[in-house]
């Protein structure tokens, strides 16, 4: 089941690249890393947001119940650890490892698509046309951290609510509202609301030590919350818990 979901997330990344190709306007290189460009056309960037978020839906489903779903085999593993927290940290490490693989595969798909557009479509731009390694590493880190925050937030909710509600909360509420918030913000064109949608290219402009410090704080806070809940959670098999 999990393998199938993993493959689905990769197919979604592939479809995302194809959808980016269909855009007539110039799109930035490795759009899913760099984010959706800022425009004044609401329809254009809403559509771009939709494309950008497409693999995220599947990634969110893939990591759904990562901590709260414990089957019989995992119970047999769990009781052999001296402490509950050992199992938690092991799970966290494997979550980060799997996310790294997913992002790596997305990167390969992106570079492959870029190569194809350069060779097959004769594009005059794109990552392979004028790539900068330092810029790419920053983008990659940024993207990875943003993904990690989304997944940790979902799993934190997952430990308190039903998995289905959490996926819905992440996909239908968080993602869709964030697009509307951005549209609302851009329509105001004022600096009062400094809300930056995670999908848009502008997140690259707000990076800096403060931004990373803030992100690290958020991640630590969420991991702390999850660990606290894990220590107090009864594991009743499957998705069931108290």
């Amino acid at each position: 089941m999990r393998n199938r979901l993993f493959r689905l997330a990769l197919y979604a990344s592939l479809i995302q690249q194809i959808l980016f190709w269909t855009m007539k306007e110039e799109i930035p290189k490795l759009c899913f890393f760099y984010g959706v460009p800022l425009t004044r056309q609401v329809t254009y960037h809403t559509m771009m947001f939709g494309y950008w978020f497409l693999p995220i839906f599947f990634v969110v489903y893939y990591f759904s119940g990562y901590f709260s779903y414990v089957d019989g085999y995992e119970m047999a593993i769990l009781i052999r650890y001296r402490k509950r927290s050992t199992f938690f940290w092991n799970r966290l490490c494997s979550l980060i490892r799997e996310l790294t693989i997913l992002v790596g595969m997305q990167l390969l798909i992106g570079i492959g698509a870029d190569f194809a557009s350069l060779r097959l479509l004769g594009a005059r731009g794109g990552f392979l046309y004028d790539w900068k390694l330092d810029e790419m590493i920053v983008c990659l880190m940024n993207y990875f951290v943003v993904m990690l925050i989304i997944i940790l937030l979902q799993n934190l909710l997952d430990m308190y609510l039903e998995s289905t509600y959490c996926c819905n909360a992440m996909v239908n509420v968080f993602i869709i509202i964030s697009v509307f918030v951005y549209n609302f913000h851009s329509s105001l064109r004022s600096g009062i609301f400094r809300l930056v949608n995670i999908a848009m290219h502008a997140r690259m402009d707000v990076q800096g030590m403060e931004m990373y410090f803030c992100m690290v704080l958020i991640i630590c806070g969420m991991i702390g919350g999850m660990r606290f809940r894990w220590k107090k959670m009864s594991l009743l098999g499957g998705k069931n818990r108290d």
Partner: peptide, 10 residues
């Protein structure tokens, strides 16, 4: 401790 609980699919 040794335990059999739930469907323990190895």
């Amino acid at each position: 401790i040794g335990l059999i609980i739930e469907n323990m699919e190895m």
